[in-house]
Design a protein around this nucleic acid. Structure first.
Lengths: 69, 69
DNA sequence: AGATAATTAATGATTATCATTAAAAAGATA
DNA sequence: TATCTTTTTAATGATAATCATTAATTATCT
């Protein structure tokens, strides 16, 4: 485990729910859930871009590197 | 254009060159160059992790969302 | 219980990394 | 200018992983 996607906080801040974000970002809620729960090993910039655009934030607000030593 | 990878600054800060980073991160310098010059449409977390680990930084130090409106 | 939201699972098509090789371009040094 | 190093570009092919879709399950709430 190392790179994690933090969507909980920012969704809470925006008072937005996952399904709504998925709708706005135009990806399936299944996919967004997988993203949110760390089931994904890569991300397309088009997806990251759409998320940042919708949430009006930067990649750094979402992606975190957690050293495991 | 929207998500860009900024490696120039951080490499300059570390006084490290691309080939050396590629060696430490264990990806080809060709690949790292492609990453650095925006020729890439996605990134694997394993790669992002290795870069962050080597450069001792966070994804937000490297990835930037630039709105194009 | 019933409704809504989120997660898990499985499948398949599509997309794109990544290594590799080779060549060209850019920088640096003398 | 000539030479060496570094970076970029190009092309190919194998491998990996997203992403949509469907269906089912679990969680959350009133």
């Amino acid at each position: 485990m190392a790179i994690i996607i933090r969507l909980d906080r920012i969704l809470a801040d925006r008072k937005m729910q996952l399904n709504e974000l998925a709708r706005q970002v135009n990806i399936s809620n299944v996919n967004l859930s997988n993203l949110k729960t760390g089931k994904v090993k890569a991300i397309r910039f088009s997806t990251l871009e759409a998320i940042c655009k919708t949430l009006n934030c930067q990649p750094g607000d979402i992606l975190e590197y957690v050293p495991d030593d």
